[in-house]
Amino acid sequence: MKYSLRTPLSRARGLGSAKHGVGHFIQQRVTAIFLAFLLPWFGLSIILATDGSFLSVQSWMRQPWNAAFTAFLILTGLYHMRLGLQVVIEDYISGPVPRSVSLLANTAIPAILAIIAMLCIAKVFVGA
């Protein structure tokens, strides 16, 4: 750090890179590649392998691969969505309190949706 190019004011503010950018970038792309396969598979399966009725969708979801990949789709999708909206919030919401509250909500909402979806897929799968 002896030859740092940052100005003294910038150092005093301590607002440099958080060193998490590359991880965020890679995770966004890795989840995107999975979703590019999972989402078309899910949409076409529901349309072509079921008639949309309760019984046909229920029996589809009770197939192990279908339940597993639906769970994978939802977890991957929610994580991708969380990463994406985080950037949108950081770009447009500037006040410290609104930004913190939005970012907290953006962590909580996908997590809650994920838990609910996993419990419900498990419930349908075991036929409880």
Binding site: I74, L85, L113, I116, I121
Partner: peptide
């Protein structure tokens, strides 16, 4: 918009369960 879509998808699975 797909944030809303994820909520609808989750609601659909809740309805199924």
């Amino acid at each position: 918009a797909l944030y809303v879509g994820a909520m609808i998808l989750t609601a659909w699975i809740v309805a199924l369960a």
